[in-house]
Structure formats: structure tokens, C-alpha cells
């Protein structure tokens, strides 16, 4: 664990494009599945244990041993990662890449950017960013797992005019589960160099994926996802 650099990377104001995304929350609000703090909490819990876990494991793997093309391909394999758990991963990967290279200049990031000029998967970029920042696999997993819920919570503050204190209290209540998800993700991520990407968790969230597809077709929306 490396203190302040982790805070810089995990800060919601880190300029990597996340502010325009709700992680599926906008669709869930419209469908009536998120109406208040309690249903936001249930939504966040679902995201955390599916999209959050997968992203955290990928980020941990990339942070531990960068074989970016392998892990990027693993992220694309349909059975390994639900491709659209409510974020458009490559677009956000490209945006994170820009911010990361400006913030922590690094040869590994440069070569990943060359290999994927239109963006590598966001959790893979996140893992390499953590390395560039001098952080470890657990730090990368923390960023991925936390961001899997924090973005949706702040989006719901705007979508439902939910009391911001209540939304933050939701994140605090989910925090112990974030810790457990990170533990699992790190164990899996650290096995990747020896055993291959097949050991990564592949929890999927079909409703989030269907919702993301539907949301992408809306004519009027506040968030990009």
C-alpha cells in the first residue's frame, strides 16, 4: 500500500472521463429499480460483486505482471468478462490512458497506448496506471472495485436528487464488501502470471448488460452509460 498516490488515482475528480457515466444507474432509475437509498444500495451491491469483481481482478492482474495484450484479450473473451457491465470499457480505457500518461509518465503505458490506439480495456489500463504510480495489485483492485459503485452513487444523486449524505452513507455501508471483493480479486489476479487468464472470475450481470444495450439506444439521456 502506498498512501497518497492511491488517493490521487482513486479520487473521483481524477480526470479520466468517469463523470459522464452512471454505470447502468440511469437505466435502472428509469426502469424503477432504483428509487431511494435502499435500492441504490442493492444496485451497488450487485454491481460490486459482478462487474466490480471482474474489473478488480483484471486490474490486479495487470498491476501485478503486465502482459497487457493477454489481459486485454482476456477481458474481451465473452466467457471471461461481461463486456458491457454498464461502462463502455474501451472508451473509458482510452480516456484513463490519456490522464494516466500525463500524470505518471511511463514506458509500459506508452507501449499499451501504441498497441491499442482506440483504447484498451479500462481495468487493464487501470492496473498499468497503478504500476506507473508505484502502487500494487491490491491498490489497483481497490480503485476498480470502489469505482464500480461510487460512480453509480454520484450519478443517482443527480438523477433522483437523492440526498448526497444518504448516497455517501450507502458507499460506507458497502465498503466492507468492497474489502472482501478486493481480497478475492487480488488472489485471482496474482494467479494469472502462473496459470493464465482463465483463473479470473467471470461473474456476470445480465440485467446490467441488457440495460446497457437499451440505454445506448435512448434518444434522450443524461449519462453516456
Amino acid at each position: 500500500m502506498s498512501g497518497a498516490a492511491l488517493l490521487v488515482l482513486a479520487d473521483g475528480r481524477f480526470p479520466a472521463g468517469g463523470h459522464a457515466h452512471s454505470g447502468g444507474a440511469e437505466e435502472a432509475v428509469k426502469a424503477g429499480r432504483i428509487t431511494d437509498a435502499a435500492s441504490l444500495e442493492a444496485f451497488c451491491r450487485g454491481r460490486l460483486h459482478t462487474a466490480g469483481l471482474v474489473a478488480a481482478a483484471l486490474a490486479a492482474a495487470a498491476a501485478a505482471a503486465p502482459t497487457p495484450s493477454n489481459s486485454d484479450a482476456a477481458a474481451d473473451a465473452p466467457d471471461a468478462l461481461p463486456r458491457r457491465c454498464g461502462w463502455p470499457p474501451r472508451r473509458l480505457g482510452r480516456q484513463l490512458m490519456r490522464a494516466a500518461r500525463a500524470t505518471w509518465p511511463d514506458a509500459e503505458l506508452d507501449s499499451l497506448a501504441r498497441e491499442f490506439p482506440k483504447g484498451a480495456h479500462q481495468p487493464v489500463v487501470l492496473g498499468l496506471t497503478a504500476r506507473a504510480a508505484g502502487l500494487g495489485a491490491a491498490d489497483a483492485a481497490y480503485c476498480a472495485a470502489y469505482e464500480s459503485v461510487s460512480g453509480s452513487a454520484s450519478a443517482v444523486v443527480r438523477l433522483l436528487s437523492l440526498d448526497p449524505f444518504e448516497a455517501t452513507a450507502v458507499l460506507a455501508r458497502v465498503a466492507p464488501e468492497v474489502d472482501r471483493v478486493v481480497d478475492r480479486a487480488v488472489v485471482a489476479g496474482l494467479r494469472v502470471p502462473g496459470e493464465g487468464a482463465g483463473v479470473l472470475p467471470s461473474a456476470s450481470a445480465p440485467l446490467l448488460e441488457i440495460g446497457a444495450e437499451a440505454h445506448a439506444g435512448w434518444g434522450v439521456r443524461l449519462f453516456a452509460s
Binding site: 475528480r13 480526470p15 479520466a16 472521463g17 468517469g18 463523470h19 459522464a20 457515466h21 452512471s22 472508451r91 482510452r94 480516456q95 490519456r98 490522464a99 450519478a155 443527480r158 438523477l159 439521456r221 443524461l222 449519462f223 453516456a224
Partner: peptide, 20 residues
Amino acid sequence: VETGACPHTAIRDDISANLE
């Protein structure tokens, strides 16, 4: 470009989508 309910963020605080 989509701005997530916050147009000034997209032109000032987090310009990544616009730069792209």
C-alpha cells in the same frame, strides 16, 4: 459528446471525452 448532467465538468474539470 455526452456530459453526464454536468456540462462545465466536460469542458473544464475532466476534458477527456472532448479531447477524444
